[in-house]
């Protein structure tokens, strides 16, 4: 069973779930966590119980997890009283961080505190890391949400993008930029990474990254699925 942890309105998630239906893919949102059936003892992740829309299952039945959100967001909790949404969203995020961190199956990307889909670094740190690897860094910046100092970018970007999925790199940027994206992902220890550049050519500068890249192109979807399946126990 593949779990896709997502915002409820993420069209890419629904597309992936349809393409991966024969792998028993299941979408988990914040609302999925607001119902009886979740049990987790820290240190025993595979013995956890998971409440899915039509059944509760053992976590041992989960073969892989794709995470497409950095946090559970309050606005994604349709069943919670408005005044409680901030608190509940943070509690759900904290629970998922601990559980996904120790789940032994493939988790793309493994959470870190502060980001369910990878390192919780500000964009500046990603650019510093790229520069330390010898890559040209653009003076252009991603527009960061004002409310979040770590500046996770929105998905819809106009920048030329390389998407790293394991050792494969996709996107219409020049090969040196693909190599730069791959090197950055490897140094950061993430299997899935979107890297934005300010142009397509080899001398383009790196603008920023996302740990929840757009993976809707069929070849990218297939590469992500291969990663999820290949490393499954």
């Amino acid at each position: 069973m593949l779990l896709i942890l997502s915002a409820p309105d993420d069209p890419i998630t629904h597309l992936l779930a349809a393409r991966w239906a024969h792998h028993a893919s299941q979408i988990v949102t914040g609302d999925s966590l607001a119902c009886a059936g979740w049990d987790y003892v820290p240190g025993r992740a595979t013995q956890a119980r998971v409440a899915l829309p039509h059944a509760c299952v053992d976590a041992s039945a989960i073969t892989a997890v794709l995470t497409r959100i950095s946090h559970v967001f309050p606005e994604h909790l349709s069943q919670i009283a408005e005044e409680d949404c901030d608190y509940v969203a943070q509690e759900m995020t904290a629970f998922l961080t601990a559980w996904l961190d120790e789940l032994p199956c493939p988790v793309l990307n493994r959470p870190r505190p502060g980001n369910l889909s990878g390192p919780s670094w500000p964009q500046a740190r990603w650019r510093q890391l790229a520069a330390s690897l010898g890559h040209h860094v653009s003076r252009a910046r991603l527009d960061a949400p004002a409310a979040h100092p770590l500046g996770f970018p929105a998905h819809a970007q106009v920048w030329p993008t390389a998407v790293v999925a394991g050792s494969a790199v996709f996107g219409s940027v020049a090969p040196p930029l693909r190599m730069a994206a791959l090197a950055l992902a490897r140094r950061a220890g993430v299997a899935l990474l979107g890297v934005f550049f300010d142009a397509h050519g080899a001398d383009a500068g790196l603008v920023g990254v996302t740990t929840t890249p757009d993976v809707h192109e069929p070849e990218v979807t297939d590469a992500v699925l291969a990663l999820l399946l290949a490393r499954a126990p």
Partner: peptide, 9 residues
């Protein structure tokens, strides 16, 4: 510090 069970483990 955002996840107490993460720390606990």
């Amino acid at each position: 510090n955002h996840s107490k069970p993460y720390q606990l483990r």
